[in-house]
Design a protein around this nucleic acid. Structure first.
Lengths: 204, 204
DNA sequence: GGGCACCGATGACATTTGTCACCGCCCACC
DNA sequence: GGTGGGCGGTGACAAATGTCATCGGTGCCC
């Protein structure tokens, strides 16, 4: 265990990624072996360099952090995955844990904390930001059925019911039923408010 | 002009801010004299340290980057202001230029570019990311009247018309007129789609 | 086998919303 | 001094939406 920890950094913002790489390089037991600016690139880099720990931004072009995490779990099971997120909605944390993510933290942590968490994760430990954890627990599970979620997602851009029905290959009446049910469960006054509420909880 | 450039960094994400500060410190003609994690804190720091250049994140708690920029222009006119943004919508650029911002760039630039741009701005120059500029030009001005924008903003959370009318102290009929007019101008099928379109253009 | 939840659908009904025409008021601009 | 545009409002009408009851089908679990 005296080897240096090999780290993969994935973030679409060059400025942040570069700065982060420079900062982690100051820690003498960490080495950034690869950087990526998109989801697919992150997968390719991981395959090529086989890092010990992958630090993934949640929002990236192509595949987002969670999708990359899910892929990595199959392709490179010995690689520990951490997710770093700017504005974390609760629902993502649950999904992240489901795909085997070992660390989940907001970008408001300090660099030295990040380095410490990388070491923790590398050693087989887990870390979840306390505030995000609290939000996730208080938010709980989505009360929506899978189909309700689907339809609500199609309603997210403000389309009229007829268009949603067409895209979902459903009857307009059925769509209205699902939306009405979803709005009721979420305590929303209409489907648009329901979309907002579901988004805030990370249920969408 | 042989003095070192005194820089204020404001970003709510400690990780990025710290990393950025470390990176800029490597440039031997730049000094980070203050850091802030929120809009009000940025103003206080600027007043206390009187930096040459303020590098502001667009999205911050309290006051956003543009509001801080507007304040700084009055309180500290000799301080040049730059805005750095993660996912930049076109409308912000126009508003930024209106409040006297000298630099506007996405977080996808490299650190050395950033350092160069800070020097440019310090010397009285301007810099606008070409891609953002192109988007802003193609997006153009908002076709909405001020009042239409207000009402559309109140409609953004999906509230029913009655609630919007109450919050705006307007008659429900008037609210519907404004929303209908706004949706028409934006080519939207209803007010919720109008909100989305206006958001995408940075007109909200 | 009986409950139970989810899916998909229909019909009916009240409410909300979108749209249009038209009004008066004020202010800026020519 | 007229004209135009924004603001705020009313009334009316058609369309979209929300809500409810009800149906049949499926699959799961006790």
């Amino acid at each position: 265990m005296t080897d240096r920890v090999r780290v993969l950094l994935a973030d679409d913002e060059h400025l942040i990624r570069g700065a982060l790489a420079a900062l982690l390089a100051l820690e003498d037991d960490l080495t950034v072996v690869a950087e990526a600016a998109s989801g697919p690139e992150a997968l390719a880099m991981a395959a090529a360099h086989r890092p010990d720990v992958a630090v993934l931004d949640l929002q990236m072009p192509g595949l987002d952090g969670l999708e990359v995490a899910a892929e990595l779990r199959h392709r490179l099971p010995e690689c520990r995955v951490m997710i770093v997120t700017g504005h974390g909605r609760p629902g993502y944390l649950k999904r992240a844990l489901e795909v085997g993510v070992r660390g989940f933290l907001p970008k408001t942590v300090s660099a030295s904390d990040l380095a410490g968490i990388i070491r923790t994760v590398r050693a087989g430990g887990r870390y979840v930001d306390p505030e995000l954890a609290a939000e996730a627990i208080s938010a709980g599970d989505s009360p929506l059925t899978p189909r309700e979620t689907d339809v609500l997602e199609l309603a997210a851009d403000g389309s009229p019911v007829a268009e949603i029905a067409e895209r979902a290959a459903l009857s307009p009446g059925t769509v209205r039923n699902y939306l009405s049910s979803a709005a009721g469960k979420l305590g929303a006054e209409n489907r648009h408010a329901a979309v907002r509420i579901a988004r805030e909880h990370g249920w969408l």
